[in-house]
């Protein structure tokens, strides 16, 4: 199955299993995705190997960034009518609160879709959506 086939199937069924299996890094950090109507909520269940600072303990900031990057790429792929592979160009990440050793959530918004470049905003939270642990924006190049 090509990535385009997997994506088509995911768009039709709302089952992200195969799409996530096709991205080893997503499986490595344990990323999950659920669809509610047209909305996608990304989840990062707690996992020992994702921790950084052992004193709090807290999730490694890089893992939070990686989680938000994969989420944005999947969100962008799902929002396209035809299959286009997003390539990340840049990523700007603000850490607002410590990511504690518990499940983390993320949602994305497509701020601007041009012919070749898309701008995506990502917000990650744990306890409440109103208390984000990190916000980010990313530019992606879309290739046919």
């Amino acid at each position: 199955m090509t990535t385009a086939d997997i994506l088509r199937e995911t768009q039709q069924t709302g089952d992200f299993t195969r799409l996530l299996e096709s991205i080893p890094y997503a499986g490595y950090i344990g990323l999950q995705c659920d669809r509610f109507g047209d909305d996608l909520i990304f989840r990062l269940p707690r996992k020992d190997s994702n921790l950084g600072n052992p004193m709090l303990p807290a999730i490694h900031g890089g893992v939070i960034g990686g989680f938000m990057e994969v989420s944005a790429a999947i969100y962008l792929m799902m929002s396209q009518d035809t299959f286009r592979m997003p390539k990340i160009v840049d990523f700007s990440l603000d850490y607002l609160r410590a990511g504690l050793d518990r499940e983390t959530y993320a949602e994305c918004h497509l701020t601007r879709q041009g012919n070749r470049v898309a701008n995506v905003m990502i917000s990650a939270w744990q306890k409440s959506r109103n208390e984000p642990i990190a916000t980010a924006r990313a530019h992606f190049l879309l290739e046919k």
């Binding site: 950090i29 900031g61 893992v63 990057e69």
Partner: peptide, 13 residues
Amino acid sequence: VIHGGAITTLMDT
């Protein structure tokens, strides 16, 4: 090709 997330973690660390 490795994922950008791993490179983000490398550079953050």
